[in-house]
Design a protein around this nucleic acid. Structure first.
Lengths: 258, 258
DNA sequence: GCGTTTATGATTGCTTTCGATCATATAACG
DNA sequence: CGTTATATGATCGAAAGCAATCATAAACGC
């Protein structure tokens, strides 16, 4: 019999969360936990797999990306595919032997996962992003460095005098950033702590690459972290013409479409 | 036909690494990548699964659950239950409102998991152990701080001037340590970097708690990290009488049996 | 070197999983 | 309130995965 739409959606949500918690569940187990028949569980899985929110396997399923960080889980869901595409394009900026900075946020996590899947020899990655660090911690091709500091679990990043000092100490060739919003005036974030840190890195880095999905276009928040003149490259799923029409003052060559 | 033993071992190693990279692979895919038939791939999987190095699923396999850090995976296997028991007992030393230091190693990971399962209100945890940090990163009861520094993936800990400075900066009420060996003379570790860091913390901490399973009793390695007079408490699955018979010069009250 | 051991690939029968189809009951909609 | 749309569970044939067996050829032990 038919069931209310919100019930179905809620069940799929909890299915998704179940998978993130257990990393893998079989179809019978899943059906049992959700209180539905196996065919229904299969259908749910098929829908979620179609949305690329999970990965199907024979006899079960697993989460699409590994987000063990609760505060990132929500954010990792929005614009998932755009972020993955952006990460694939941004990967080209990762040069062998260089030192890169990875910002906080799920887009940067996507980039870290991309780097894990396609290692770049002799690269150094400095980050305050624990999830990204986690992803890269197993790679012996990557020289991984953490900024240290206090873990702000809400914002999911490391912050404090330790973190700042790490920025002072290390050379940064290419700095990768995300942001919560972008408009004609520049790039924006909500949290002042995040912005403070980002500004410091931008001042230090030889090259600044912003990775932002189109959903953030035209969105501004309390703190501007930089104006566009400091930005060498923008990787986005928004087309150059769309960006131009919204007043983003970047040369066409500086924009990489994902 | 038969194949040299080292070839088999190498293939299983690379199978294990393949799974870590891809997080999941089907049997046919695995067989293709390894250049063997499906039955052989299945046999390899069965062996690795028997060693708890991977997790089998229907039609494929994935890396062993819970330990996402490759270098810890091996070590997490030995004395698993002893470590869990030790962690449960050591949990009693975690005081509300105090600042604790968690050392590198799988025993400390076990303690972190214990803390995650049974949160202690208003506790601050400082660590150079990324796996432990990972475990605690979601808890809003724990004020988590990382030392920062370079990630030594082999030893699975953060090291460098950043890390040392973090020790200088923060007060430490209780420091929890593991070690590779203990005997009548004191506690031992192989890596000089690890020892350097541990000594620094011991000098700073108000209270020092060592958590060591009995398998490490009587084992000494190149670097002594401390003598017993600096140690306030030892948590171990070895009985006090056994420890005494091996010449461990600790008062009975300082030993907590797990 | 020679005999033994054993890792491998092919084959076979069995089990599990999957996708499609279908009747049904209930939510959604006018 | 009546009609339509659709989510569900059951069933069934097809496909895939698996464990076991077996012949073989190469590595290992003496």
């Amino acid at each position: 019999m038919r069931v209310a739409a919100h019930v179905v959606e809620a069940r799929r949500e909890s299915l998704s969360r179940l998978l993130e918690r257990h990393r893998y569940l079989s179809v019978p187990e899943l059906a049992r936990q959700l209180g539905v028949s196996e065919p229904t569980a299969r259908r749910d899985l098929s829908v979620l797999a179609g949305q690329k929110r999970i990965t199907r396997t024979h006899g079960g399923a697993m989460p699409e990306i590994e987000v063990t960080f609760a505060s990132l889980r929500e954010r990792a869901r929005v614009a998932r595919q755009a972020k993955a595409r952006i990460a694939r394009r941004a990967h080209g900026f990762l040069e062998a032997g260089s030192c890169c900075y990875l910002d906080a946020g799920t887009t940067m996590l996507a980039l870290a996962l991309q780097l894990r899947a396609h290692p770049v020899h002799g690269i150094t990655v400095l980050t305050n992003n624990l999830a990204a660090a986690n992803a890269l911690s197993g790679s012996d091709q990557v020289d991984l460095r953490l900024t240290g500091g206090r873990w702000l679990s809400r914002q999911a990043f490391l912050f404090g005098p330790e973190a700042s000092r790490a920025i002072d100490l290390w050379d940064i060739d290419t700095a990768f950033f995300s942001a919560e919003g972008m408009d004609a005036e520049g790039l924006w974030n909500t949290q002042p702590e995040v912005v403070e840190m980002q500004r410091k890195v931008i001042a230090k880095a030889r090259r600044v690459v912003f990775c932002i999905d189109s959903g953030k276009l035209g969105h501004s928040t309390p703190n501007r972290l930089t104006t566009w003149d400091k930005v060498q490259h923008l990787v986005s799923d928004a087309s150059p013409s769309l960006l131009a029409s919204r007043g983003i003052p970047l040369r066409r060559q500086a924009i990489l479409s994902a």
